[in-house]
Design a protein around this nucleic acid. Sequence first.
DNA 1: GAGTGGTCTAGACCACGAG
DNA 2: TCGTGGTCTAGACCACTCA
Lengths: 246, 246
Amino acid sequence: MAYRHQFIADELRAQISTGRIKAGDRLPSEAQLASRYTVSVPTLRNALAVLQGEGLIEKVHGLGNFVRQPFQWITYVGGSRRADAHAAAEAGLRVSVRTVRLKARGILVDLMQVPAGATLVEYRYLSLEGESPHSLSRVYVPSDSARDDDHEGAEPIGGDGLVARLAAPHPPLAEVRERISARLPTNEEAMALRISTALAVLSIERVAVDADGRVVEGALLVLPGDRADAVFTTHHTMNEGRGTEG
Amino acid sequence: MAYRHQFIADELRAQISTGRIKAGDRLPSEAQLASRYTVSVPTLRNALAVLQGEGLIEKVHGLGNFVRQPFQWITYVGGSRRADAHAAAEAGLRVSVRTVRLKARGILVDLMQVPAGATLVEYRYLSLEGESPHSLSRVYVPSDSARDDDHEGAEPIGGDGLVARLAAPHPPLAEVRERISARLPTNEEAMALRISTALAVLSIERVAVDADGRVVEGALLVLPGDRADAVFTTHHTMNEGRGTEG
DNA sequence: GAGTGGTCTAGACCACGAG
DNA sequence: TCGTGGTCTAGACCACTCA
């Protein structure tokens, strides 16, 4: 039960974790590694696929295989809203934003509980740590509650306008519902986050509702599973603590 | 940019979703499929790997590739405790339980905030839908707060003692913290849940704390990503609804 | 153009499951 | 024993990156 590609993956993983191969280094070419370990190229590529799935290396077509930088760990804190880009900015991450006005269709109709064709404003965030993307967020707001100073088009990375907008007061909020799932990324998401399609992502679907039950904001977040988790804290009063209320 | 294995995967997926190939059916052998689509066997196997990662088929060595049963969707509801097996029982799922007394080490020391070597009671649940496993839970309780009628060893599936124990009152509870992550399963988990190691799982680490800040219960849950998600609801009062409090 | 990774081929050899 | 999937080989051909 000792697979050759697993053995090679273990070897390379050890060399990476002990610093024998440093972050940012390029590995020898696949042909060179294959001959060093006396295996065929496809077998060696299987070994690299294991490391890629663990987020340890990054494959760049035409250039080679590179050891990835260790990541800053991101913890998503549940129960709040519109905090994603703001929290990322506080953590010293750069944030790129794109604002687009669009018509609700497909899953957005369910998410926002609006009729198909209703106008929504989409804010698309991509938080970056250096050159490597960290999280992908799509936040939706009904068009009538989007503020007048929201503008369409691209905004330069880390613009002050963004931070000001994020810090601005929001309409009263009654409830936040968050639905979490684990899956493999779509090709588009893997591309944007520059991760392997074999690396699991945490997918968060969030809806904020006001006191009248109207959806004030919806959000679709995608976080790479190798450097992100989500935390939720629920407070109980004393008499709630009994029985199985779930 | 049209990969042959992706094309074949799309073809087979369509045949499965339209019922042309029914749940439980065996696919033609890999060699037969390869010749039908005029590709090599490794390429065809890549196509099957895609479907396996989506949880649509199950590969059985020596027998063939089988279409999996559609699953009952499981939603984990955050904020409660010890509800897992109880909720599963209510949903009509069978539950198998193993109770073991053990000493804290490794991550359990952090999880339960006890000194290394402290005695814990572990309840290990595996909820089942028919023959196919649904979720894997390990629940830990400090030994001193484990009740006297807890016994070690295996308990028959669906025993009444379990339901009675789950419905029993618990000590007062102040707070539940849940940490969610997405990852690929370990080989052990994939084996227990009978899923592909390429199928993402939702991993939930839950800690329940009493009014004195002591850890009353810890739990490690693993849910297959193709049939499970988690939901959290946070209520806000009116004056909490302003600003970015996350 | 030289070197790299990405996809695919055709087939060998082994391990597993059932008759 | 036979058919099945699991791993691996040796190499072709293409696409990408950079000098």
